[in-house]
Nucleic acid binder design. Sequence first.
DNA 1: AGGCATGGTAACCATAAGGTAACAGTGTAG
DNA 2: CTACACTGTTACCTTATGGTTACCATGCCT
Lengths: 227, 227
Amino acid sequence: MLVLLVEDDAALAAQLIDFLQHENIEVDYAASVSSAKEIAAQTIKYSRYDAAILDMDLPDGNGISLISEQILGQGVPVLFCTAATALEDKLAAFSAGALDYITKPFDLPELAVRLKLLAKKQGAHAENTFELDSLLIDFNTQIAKRGERILVLSPQQWLLLSLLTKHAPNPVSKEDILCKVWPDQDVNNNMYKSLLTRLRKNISRDSERELLHTIKGQGLVLRKHSE
Amino acid sequence: MLVLLVEDDAALAAQLIDFLQHENIEVDYAASVSSAKEIAAQTIKYSRYDAAILDMDLPDGNGISLISEQILGQGVPVLFCTAATALEDKLAAFSAGALDYITKPFDLPELAVRLKLLAKKQGAHAENTFELDSLLIDFNTQIAKRGERILVLSPQQWLLLSLLTKHAPNPVSKEDILCKVWPDQDVNNNMYKSLLTRLRKNISRDSERELLHTIKGQGLVLRKHSE
DNA sequence: AGGCATGGTAACCATAAGGTAACAGTGTAG
DNA sequence: CTACACTGTTACCTTATGGTTACCATGCCT
């Protein structure tokens, strides 16, 4: 079992790594948001994490951004482990997609148990695929197909598509999309429109049913029928 | 979404039930192990719980026994909510099969979030719909139907309709509507009238019953009969 | 009646919002 | 260096949203 640990307190991290290894859990370690991105980018090419342990307060940002920018890839369960005890911090983490939240100080065995629970559920439960009409997405292999045709998606398109699948069949607001696909960047509406056209072209070709519908003023949805 | 709550502190239980109901979660309540068994036995015949919230210390036993004796049936996710903070208690709960563990005192919203997470993973989803006569609104998917006809609503119309459903079957004053639909804008009565006509046209067509009634001098209501 | 306030409907149309295609700058692999 | 993929930019088209106006209905008061 392979886990990503992002934690700026080196002493705590060392302790954690040591403990987890005794539990037969391999750990990739990063001390900051930026290094986490690098490590994850390399690792994800070859395998995927079974879970991630994130800290909230990091020297160069907030752990939440690692989720919202989808650095970890689809379906990697996230456990926040942080000193922040405020309710709003917890809610922010959960709404970003965290699956558990534990506050410092904590007992190592509890963390390990919760971690295993997350990873187990992930492995047992989710084959980590999404299916709609003849569209099939496998998040493990990062392959998307429409029928037998394999879709070649750019990074942006992949990001948007996985964001939509996560919420389907519920819509995602344009604002959400903008700040997830282009985090801390200048965005304009044209960039959004371009991306959308490109993704549509890839997903539906010829007479294939359109699956990507915009609800005016509301957002984007992935579903069979426009409304 | 249906949840079983087993908790011997009546005041806390009442508070919990109240909060959860506002979150659209139905609650079956038991104050002891024995009554939990009875209630569960009855309920499970007809449906199954989407999750269970268990206390540890109960007058006639330990909540853990409800899991180990398989009272709840297979696959019902369990969240322990208890005053016991000791690591060994937590480990006991997790090893019995609990999926989450939260210690008192806690924040209600956090409990609700964790609960929904559990249930969601299990496959239930909190419904968020409104129904009146043949009008059906799903706020998750943002789809409104009148019978089988799907309503295509503009952003303004959505706003107004959801405002009305929130208060139904009570009226909403015109002033309220004006400042919710057109926040910090110049509004005039014509804009209001137009919006109203358009929404009416969408909701009721041909011989369908009118559901949107204005009460002179009071405001707007969503209900079957004008009075 | 007449005047007037409140509500309701229909039609008009400027404009925002959405959609597409084509081009250009950048980076990267070979 | 070349070729290509990716993405930001621009231009242009289409649609329907929503503000506006004009006109009608009803109820109420003097």
